[in-house]
């Protein structure tokens, strides 16, 4: 379970809070989608959960324990993180990328190798082909799969993903997000996924949290958000998929 209490962040030299105050509870096993316009503080929020950014005030609790007293390194090992900009290490093979944390933790070699193969299979990359590839020899979607595998390497129970499907074509995007949902359930993860795409959030997540200017505007299931948007901003956001579908229909209906 992830719990944010009155969480706030103000960066140096900034004249207002980038995030917060923010209160949020993600129960165990939930997949929460975090949506909001660019600059609304989504990445900053995720970074505060694994202490890449230290909050200015408030606290983050994981399974009821305040993380500010925990060793950041141990904390991060329990959290899989997929960065907004993928972040595979360019000079390492796919296998090395996935294995880096387990190997630095001195897992036995054969166990690491088995783990790498297992994870590659889990994300549907054939180990025999992809183990030795370098990141630049992968397509964008394959890189994203490898990044998933790497985030899962140390057996985290929580996954934080910052726009993991940002730069992919719609088909691959759909496929990957569906696969992630399966993995999420199979491994019993608690996950937060940041996305710009409302449709994706509807299809993928258990609940959706809408952020604007660092604050939580509304949180609820897709159905709840559609039925009762908290304000005009949320209404606009949740209507987006339908508006687009309608526009699409119109465009189809009136060709030329």
């Amino acid at each position: 379970m992830i719990e944010l209490r009155q969480l706030r962040k103000r960066f140096d030299h900034a004249d207002h809070d980038a995030v917060g105050p923010l209160d949020l509870r993600v129960p165990p096993g939930e997949l929460l989608a975090l949506v909001g316009t660019s600059g609304s503080g989504k990445s900053t929020t995720l970074h505060m959960i694994n202490r890449l950014v230290e909050p200015s005030a408030g606290s983050v609790l994981i399974d009821g324990i305040d993380i500010s007293g925990q060793d950041p390194v141990a904390l991060r090992r329990g959290i899989g993180f997929v960065f907004q900009a993928i972040g595979l290490f360019a000079h390492m093979s796919v296998a090395d990328n996935i294995a880096i944390t387990p190997r630095l933790l001195r897992w036995p070699r054969d166990e690491v190798a088995a783990r790498v193969d297992g994870l590659l299979e889990l994300v549907h990359l054939d180990p025999a082909i992809y183990r030795a590839r370098m990141p630049h020899q992968l397509s964008g979607g394959q890189r994203q799969r490898a990044a998933f595998a790497r985030a899962l390497a140390a057996r985290p129970r929580i996954m934080l993903m910052d726009e993991p499907f940002g730069a992919l074509d719609p088909l691959t995007r759909d496929e990957l997000s569906a696969e992630f949902r399966t993995i999420h359930e199979k491994l019993g993860l608690t996950s937060i996924i940041v996305t710009h795409d409302m449709t994706e959030a509807f299809l993928l997540a258990d609940r959706i949290a809408v952020m604007r200017a660092g604050r939580l505007v509304q949180i609820g299931t897709a159905r709840a958000l559609l039925a009762d948007p908290a304000d005009e901003f949320v209404r606009q956001m949740v209507r987006m998929p339908r508006l687009r579908a309608a526009r699409l229909a119109r465009a189809m209906g009136e060709p030329g």
């Binding site: 141990a74 991060r76 993180f81 290490f89 630095l104």
Partner: peptide, 16 residues
């Protein structure tokens, strides 16, 4: 070398 490339990504993986 990975940390020279991007220290935040290395940190995020739970590496000390």
């Amino acid at each position: 070398r990975a940390a020279i490339e991007n220290v935040e990504h290395v940190e995020g993986l739970g590496i000390n």
